[in-house]
Amino acid sequence: MAFDLPFLLQILKAIFQAMPLTLAIALVSCAGAFLLGFAFEILRRVNRPLGLLMRLIIDFIRSTPLLVQIYFFYYVLPYYGVVLPGVVVGGMALSIYYSGYLAEVFKAGIDTIPAGQSEAALALGLAPMDVTFRVIAPQMLRNIAAPMGNYFVSILKSTPYLAVIGVAEMMGMTLEIASSTFRYAEPMLLLGIVFFILAATMAWCVRRLEVRLMQSSKR
């Protein structure tokens, strides 16, 4: 691996050009996974048949690889005439895949709230909606902030999967350079370092948040 500064700079430039798209995909997917996961968990609590169905869906999502889910949407949707750009399909797949995990996080977050909380809220005459959004959800958010943050880091780390369906995020951009120059080692190494710094920074922020939440719930 000869040291070739101009080449390294060229790669770095490409990686940084692709960074906004990567972060945007991660952000949108986080929001998607959050909303979908919360919907799954609420639906699971409606009644028993629906609960079992949601559980099967969640288990299915969690029991199949993300890569395969991406392929599925990317190749099957066009077959039925739904042609979407790769970046949309990818964001969708990431949202769905991680919603399965976030639903479990929501479940744990709700389960750890003492039953007395919703009983007390209902006894005060609050509407079920208010019980959910005024009493349960705020407490739940504190419980789940840390595990949720970790999944958000995971979503960021999963964006390279989108390269396999031709999305020019950081991995896709790097692969493009690599395959056009037939030099893979340096680009991959640099990409690894950039991702490592990004993900480690985000993970550090999540830990900080966790510590602060722990302190505030002690009071």
Binding site: M1, V153, K157, S158, T159, P160, Y161, A163, M171, L175, A178, Y184, A185, M188, L189, L191, G192, F195, F196, A199, A200, A203
Partner: peptide, 22 residues
């Protein structure tokens, strides 16, 4: 942290392509 924070796909490509060059 290196093994945890670097995306696994990147890790795999990194080693698959870098190891032969050394």
């Amino acid at each position: 942290e290196f093994w945890r924070s670097t995306p696994v796909l990147v890790l795999m490509f990194m080693f698959y392509y870098s190891l032969p060059t050394v």
